[in-house]
Design a protein around this nucleic acid. Structure first.
Lengths: 217, 217
DNA sequence: TACGTTCTGTGATCTCGATCACAGATCGAC
DNA sequence: GTCGATCTGTGATCGAGATCACAGAACGTA
C-alpha cells in the first residue's frame, strides 16, 4: 500500500480520477443514490438544496482542497443536496466503495474524516445560531467576514488591506437565507459605513476591522 | 480485548462510569475544555447554546441510548454548547482519552461514529432548511411530529392513538427558534383544529394524521 | 388551605424583512 | 457600437413574529 495521504482530499485526488466542469455543470442531484465522493481541485462547487417554495438554500461553497459528497457514502442514504460547478472547475471523483475500503485499510484516515465531520457539525450549529438571533445585516456581515477569511487563507493575492470576494448578491442571499433585496440593503449599510464596496459579481471589503466592529453590536 | 460493542453508547456505558443527575444539573458548559464523552442511560439531557441576546437555543434533547459531547473529544476544541439534565437522569461518562483509544483499537467503531455524525449533520441541515422556509406554525408542527415519533419508538406506553409529549412550551420555542408567545399561538391553532391538546408541561397530540396534513400545506 | 411561583393564553403595538415593481449599470455577443 | 440579458439599487406596501403587558391556571409547599 502507498503511503497514507494526510488528508481526505489528497486521498481522493490520488486514487480517484479528475473531472473537468463548466459553469453550472451538475455533479449530482438531491435524492440521487450515492456512488462517489469528491474533492475540489480547482474552481468552486455550490452545494444547494431546493426548498418547497422553490427558493434555493446554499449549504456551502466548496473550494480547492475541500471534500464533498461524503455523507451519502458514509451512511448510504440518498443525497440530501445537489452539487453544481460554480464557474469552471476541476474535481476529483472517487467511487464510494473505494473510499470506504480506504477507510478500513487506513485507520488514521477514519480519524481524519471524524475530525472533518466534527468541524462541519460545529459550523452547522453556529449557522443555526446565527439564523436565530441575528438580523439580516448581522448575518450578512458575519458571512462576509467568513469569506474574507477564506479568501485570505486561500489567496493567490498578496495580503492587501482590501479583500475582493467574487460572488453575486443573490448567492450571498441564498447563503444567509434572505432575499436578494434585503441583502442588497444590508450591503448598502456597509457601503455607507465605508467598510465595503460593491460591484457586479463581486464585493470588496475595504476595512475588515470596521466591518467586524459594525457587526459585533 | 472484550467483544466490540455494536454502538457507541454501549461502549461508553460499558467502559465508563455512571453519574446520577437531578433536574438542571450541568454536565459541562460552553467553552469548557473537553475531557469526556457521555451516553444517556435514563432520563433526558438538554444541549443548549446561549445566544448573545441572552436567549437560549436548544440544539438537542438527548434520550436514553444517545451519545453527546463527542465533538470536542474528536477535534479537541472547547465545548460549543452546554449540557444540563432535563429532569432527573442517569448518564455514563467516559474520559475522552479512553474514547479515542477505543476508536483506534476497534476500527469498526470508527465507522459507527462516522455514521452517527453523518446523520447528525443531515439533521442539522434539515433544521437549517426548515428555519429558512417555514413559518412558526409549520416548524412547530414538524417538531411535534418528530417528537411523536421519538416518544412512540421509545415508548414504554402502548400504541394508543394519542401521544403525550412531556415538554414546556418555552422549551419547544427555544427548539424551533421562536418566542414562547408565537409557539403558544401556533399550538392554539392546532388546538382549534382539534389535533392537539395542551397542558402544563405537556402537549398531547390526539390526531397525528390531522396534524400531519395540517402542516403539509 | 392559603400563598408564591411557574406556566399558559391572548390582546396591542411595532419592526424587520418578504414581496412587488422598476430604473439604472454592467457585461457579453453579434 | 448596439442590443439583450443579467445584476444591482431602492422605493412602497404588507404581514408574520418579536416585544410588552397582563390575567388566569396549575402546581409545590408551608
Amino acid at each position: 500500500m502507498a503511503v497514507a495521504p494526510t488528508t481526505v482530499a489528497e486521498l481522493i485526488v490520488e486514487r480517484g480520477r479528475l473531472v473537468e466542469l463548466r459553469d453550472g455543470d451538475p455533479l449530482f442531484f438531491e435524492g440521487d443514490r450515492s456512488d462517489a465522493v469528491f474533492a475540489v481541485v480547482s474552481g468552486r462547487v455550490r452545494i444547494v438544496v431546493t426548498l418547497v417554495t422553490g427558493a434555493e438554500l446554499l449549504l456551502g461553497l466548496k473550494l480547492p482542497g475541500e471534500v464533498f459528497g461524503e455523507l451519502s457514502a458514509l451512511d448510504g442514504r440518498p443525497r440530501a443536496a445537489a452539487a453544481y460547478s460554480y464557474g469552471d472547475a476541476v474535481v476529483a471523483r472517487l467511487p464510494s466503495v473505494e473510499f470506504l475500503d480506504a477507510l478500513e485499510d487506513v485507520p488514521e484516515l477514519a480519524l481524519t474524516v471524524l475530525r472533518e465531520l466534527s468541524s462541519m457539525l460545529r459550523r452547522a450549529n453556529v449557522r443555526l445560531q446565527a439564523r436565530n438571533s441575528n438580523r439580516t445585516v448581522v448575518r450578512a456581515g458575519h458571512l462576509l467576514l467568513e469569506l474574507v477569511d477564506i479568501v485570505r487563507r486561500h489567496g493567490d493575492a498578496g495580503a492587501t488591506a482590501s479583500v475582493v470576494i467574487p460572488i453575486r448578491q443573490s448567492d450571498l442571499a441564498d447563503w444567509i437565507g434572505a432575499t436578494r433585496e434585503a441583502t442588497a440593503r444590508a450591503l448598502g449599510e456597509f457601503r455607507k459605513q465605508g467598510c465595503v464596496e460593491t460591484g457586479r459579481g463581486k464585493i470588496t471589503v475595504v476595512d475588515v476591522d470596521a466591518l467586524e466592529s459594525f457587526v459585533e453590536l
